[in-house]
Amino acid sequence: MIRVKKASYLLFLLLAVACLDEPDCFNLRNDAVTFVFRKLYDGKLDTVTLVRTDVTGKSVNLFEEDTVVLSTVSVLVDYTAEQSLVKLKTFERSTSIDIGYRVQAQFISETCDPRFVLSELKVLGSDADSVNVPNSTPSAGGNINVYRCPRTNYIRIAFREVEADGDLRRDTLTITKSIADFEAVKLFADSGALSFVRLPLNPNSNTTTYTFTLPNNSSKTITFAYTRTTKVILPACGVQTVFDDLSILSSTFDRAELFPNDARTRLKRDSIYDPPIANFQVVH
């Protein structure tokens, strides 16, 4: 009978443990879909400056700053519907991606909100260069890859100053305003000291002129010349305009020239690369 008593105590101990088995009221939704920015050329991560994310017309930024430089971004999608239109606005472009998914719901407890489980993520439509869904379950790594075609018209200018011995060394320039002679997308902020800028060339002309306003209200103008040819770099991107033989046609900077190659590199400074290399150096 002693053994029976001991066994009784054991059973009541198990009963006490069972009373601790209450459901948790957190992690009730996996509604964060992660977009990964990639380059179509090699599939590697791309870096973008994200300005804004909208989902079905509602801003759902998961970051506090106005703009952030990143390669992946998570947005909260509408778990009360089975479709969300996600708009990712970067400095370069605005991309819309219409995504569909399955939403399963579960009653959790008297004190918790219902749980929503999103799965079977798919892209219903997109104006991105290319997209795919490597992981169809939200909140489990990167869900949607957003690919971009190679950028063929962005040059890079490095700012330099002349040292006492005549050598050039790295410098910064503060630009308060920049104007192109065509409808261009700028890739830098209008404030702060910049050591370089990336500038798009006009794909419809053999020259492009930029006018920069400096903090003392003076302005500097620079005109680039180039040749244009069309080429299929990637079939998914179709025919693209390729810019070669870059040169400076005119400049009001103290000095502006092709960026010198060092002996170790075989880069052609008068051609455009993606990601961009320094094509020109400017002394002011």
């Binding site: 509602k58 009360t80 519907a81 719901a105 009653f107 219902p114």
Partner: peptide, 12 residues
């Protein structure tokens, strides 16, 4: 059977 209700600040 379950009737599921939730109020979302974003989605209503």
């Amino acid at each position: 059977t379950s009737t599921l209700i939730t109020q979302s600040e974003i989605w209503g």
